[in-house]
Write a protein that binds this DNA or RNA. Structure first.
Lengths: 342, 342
DNA sequence: TTGAAAGCGCTACCAG
DNA sequence: CTGGTAGCGCTTTCAA
């Protein structure tokens, strides 16, 4: 493993010059630059991460992380927040501080203001679960345009200039739900679907993936009815109950939003627990209980811990180590969880 | 984030002394030691990983990694080897070299000799997929007893003194297969089982998990017949074919060993593809193809990449950073893969 | 038993 | 445009 020092020695220049060449900082005599590059290539130089990390400490980087919910509201985000805190503790060691803020999903002005605050507060990079609204999108575009790195997490605003997105491929996760539903029901089912809101892109993407796929591949699966629960357990109970009463032929449920507990209460309330094939999203504690009870057949996870930590890593690599993300989309796996592998 | 330097300053001692206290090396005046510890505790000192890593480079550690198969034989281990190589490249940066050796699963003497060679060659730690045989077990016990760190991977020899095991919880993965089989078949099935060899602990553990679980929980699932394929595709074809002919009532297969391709060839040969519920282990390329074709319903993965990399990390943490593994068993997840989430 | 100093690889700064 | 130097946190060695 060659080092900058060795390259400097071989090239007959100083370490500073090698550093300038390899990291495109400052300007260097083209001849020397060429020589350095040749040697680096010949020796297959790769920078030492520990060295870079240690040196990066002096930068005292500050990151902002804006995400939905005030922790208590949506248990899925609790896992994300836990992962953020853990990673933030680790990053503290290398001089990074992380400022975590919460905004609600329905207030673009508030989220835009939150971005402004963080930037004014001097953060060097931002992770955000963005609301897909011009007020936010434009601000992100503007920031990115000025060289400020933004990573979107959990949900994306394509084309806003962010350096990467970390989160689920919702469309594909909809297909996975279809595949699972097909296996569980033997290929023939009358499905009731519960979604959060047609306006939340994630949920509608999931539903598109599911719908298109069953129409194309699993023609024995039919969607009989759809209900909207606003990601709320109380609403969820009511609309699910109504749907099940109105469509007694329903023999399976796809719960494509939060509010899984409410929906399952409705199922139990009608004495249908264990009689319906139920597939839902997000592996949260209440869902695990329902799986153990035999109410839910399978839950589809989306690696919340990765969604929390990875964006911070990308930001640190970018700002601390000078490494640009190697891809634009860091899709999380759609994990299938049943009672036995919870 | 406090540093050793700060603690030294506050305690009125040198960095060397602080180091000695915090890492129990050399002896220190009890009074000073106490003071240092108090300050470290008060400041919630945690060592800086980058600093430690950098300093560890001077140790020039050497690890050995003994595993089954010569890569080509079992595609599962190809993923493991790939992960080992990747992690080894990363560790090279911090002065670690990894010597990877292959042994066959049926030659304990050869594996024991291989261990001896590596140790004689001066490795500081060893990762091994051990053959569960006294010849190997005793050697591992002896090594461990003398303070030499061993990590078992993929398969374990309990009580051999190794500092940790990284791999599947086979019994539990058998239960997961049962759960999946139950979902796919609607709770009623006549199952044919293919195992590698009753002598390979992993496979028999899987089968125990599966068997005990269905007897207890899924009483509609019956095992009609078992076949042994010696992890070989040719044998697998033959024994599976024979079994399916002899037991035409079989409507589902559990493939608990390698040789998945051979077994599926038999299924196709008899025109049964798409008509049987098939659950198998290990997400390898040929298996993925069979899932896409609709021959296999689900495959259960065991995180080969983690099995390759994690043991090396544990060894480096132990020898390079002075950190003992925080648990004895690092179980991999049993990942459920179907056509849509491959 | 202890302190001082060098060095792991990299970056930043200053002087020229 | 360039070289030298200091320093990030930790370990190790040498001298006292």
């Amino acid at each position: 493993m060659p080092t900058i020092k060795e390259i400097a020695l071989l090239a007959g220049v100083s370490r500073g010059t090698v550093d300038r060449v390899l990291n495109n900082r400052g300007s260097v005599d083209p001849k020397k630059a060429k020589k350095v590059l040749e040697i680096a290539r010949a020796l297959e130089y790769t920078p030492n991460i520990a060295g870079k990390t240690l040196a990066a400490k002096k930068k005292q980087l500050k990151f902002g992380y804006i995400l939905f919910g005030s922790t208590s509201s949506n248990p899925f985000f609790e896992d994300v927040v836990r992962a953020i805190k853990n990673r933030a503790d680790e990053l503290a060691e290398v001089g990074v501080t992380v400022d975590v803020r919460f905004t609600t999903i329905d207030k673009p002005e508030a989220q835009a203001a939150c971005i402004d605050e963080l930037v004014a507060g001097g953060v060097d990079g931002l992770v955000i679960t963005p609301i897909n609204h011009p007020l936010v999108a434009d601000k992100l575009r503007e920031l990115s345009g000025s060289g400020f790195p933004v990573v979107t997490a959990n949900t994306d605003v394509p084309g806003c200039g962010r350096i990467a997105y970390v989160g689920s491929d919702y469309y594909k996760s909809g297909e996975t739900a279809a595949g699972m539903m097909n296996l569980i029901t033997g290929g023939s089912a009358n499905i009731g679907v519960v979604i959060g809101s047609p306006l939340v892109l994630c949920h509608s993407e999931r539903l598109s993936g599911f719908t298109n796929y069953i129409e194309k591949v699993f023609t024995g699966l039919k969607i009989l009815a759809k209900a909207v629960n606003n990601d709320d357990d109380i609403d969820s109970f009511r609309v699910t109950r109504d749907m099940l009463i109105r469509f007694p032929e329903i023999d399976s449920l796809l719960l494509a939003a939060a509010g899984v507990l409410g929906a399952c209460r409705a199922v139990k309330d009608l004495g249908l627990d264990g009689k319906l094939a139920i597939v839902c999203y997000d592996v949260v504690p209440t869902t695990c209980d329902l799986i153990r009870e035999g109410v839910i057949s399978a839950a589809l996870g989306q690696q919340p811990a990765l969604q929390g930590a990875k964006p911070l890593d990308l930001l640190f690599d970018y700002l601390g180590m000078g490494v640009t993300p190697e891809k634009e989309f860091y899709y999380t796996e759609t994990e299938i969880k049943i009672r036995e592998n919870l």
